[in-house]
Amino acid sequence: MSTNIEVAAQAATIAADGQWPLWEVFTQSEQAAPHEHAGSLHAVDAEQAIQNARDVYARRGGVISLWVVPAGAITASSASDAGPLFDPGADKAYRHPQFYKAPRGVRVF
């Protein structure tokens, strides 16, 4: 079983040159807003990543919550896959309300 600890440990593996591991920082600007990617930083562990994220990305205020993720733990889709991954979603008109008709004068919502 792959625990979170293992994932974090692998993701935060030290580089050969002693460089601290890279973390990605996500900030939430207000309640109910999504966390958005703010940038990255280096830190040796999660506690330090949170502290550094606070000082680097929240020092001007406007942040109410932080996520930090070891950069290596993020799997990103590949640009060459963009066609098969995303284009098919772009032409499914039946997923959108405008596709469906309602009798004139009736409010459906």
Partner: peptide, 11 residues
Amino acid sequence: PILEEDIATAN
């Protein structure tokens, strides 16, 4: 000692 800490110390 590292850029991140420079910013923290200034805070």
